[in-house]
Nucleic acid binder design. Structure first.
Length: 219
DNA sequence: CCCTGATTCGC
DNA sequence: GCGAATCAGG
């Protein structure tokens, strides 16, 4: 493989968007992330600053937070297929890469995760009256069990998700489903999952919640 | 161990 | 110019 104009352009685009070198390499095919990085430097666009820190931080296991206790899963296998039905399209289109690093994950930091109790079964879906494609949706945490901050960060993440298909899921990709499985607008988050967990940081914070937090929020 | 980008240097 | 190997770091 060689650096054709097209490939270079895709490289530039993805790098500008904040994609990691490995993701770019995967997309291009036939090159390693080293090749991508090398090319990036030779092109002189190494300075990726200027409001585009997107790349999923491949976070290292937080040492201080989350001691020994594991939070109780809200609905591990269940899918939050349609968090709220009125949502039209998750499509970010070709808009600005508008990003805010710090604000993107406030909820995760704000959840110390105390000792968990046995998880209660996921509550049945609230009567919203909207069933997009005829098929019943899987059980999912109701909206009033998710803190507004967490919800907001999740929505942000979903805009930035890699939108991968079932076949593209691996051990280390977030398996959080987005959209309605019965429609064309269905995909998986695909961002790097937390080590040992099926979801990325943001979705872990929704799926795994301490009982106390859930109790406090329940109505 | 997973990942990130940066640098070096033989080709 | 290219990119594997290596380095430094989260």
């Amino acid at each position: 493989m060689s650096w054709t104009d097209e490939r270079v352009e895709l490289l530039k685009k993805m790098w500008t968007e904040g994609q990691s070198a490995s993701q770019i390499a995967k997309e291009l095919g036939g090159v390693t992330r080293n090749a991508v990085i090398g090319k990036v430097h030779r092109l002189g666009l190494s300075n990726r600053v200027e409001g585009a820190p997107a790349a999923a931080p491949a976070a290292s296991p937080a040492p201080s937070a989350r001691p020994a206790a594991e939070p109780s899963p809200v609905a591990p296998a269940a899918a939050p297929a349609a968090m709220n039905a009125p949502r039209p399209e998750p499509e970010p289109a070709e808009t600005e890469p508008e990003l805010e690093p710090a604000a993107a994950r406030p909820a995760a930091a704000a959840r110390p995760a105390p000792a968990p109790q046995p998880a209660a079964p996921a509550p049945a879906m609230r009567k919203t009256g909207i069933v997009p494609a005829g098929q019943p949706l899987p059980p999912q945490p109701s909206l009033n069990e998710i803190s507004p901050e967490t919800l907001a960060s999740v929505r942000e993440v979903e805009k930035r998700s890699r939108k991968i298909s079932l076949m593209e899921l691996t051990e280390r990709t977030c398996k959080w489903p987005i959209g309605d499985p019965a429609t064309d607008h269905f995909y998986f988050c695909g961002l790097p999952s937390q080590p040992g967990k099926p979801y990325c940081e943001a979705h872990v914070s929704v799926a795994f919640q301490p009982m106390s937090a859930r109790r406090d929020r329940r109505r």
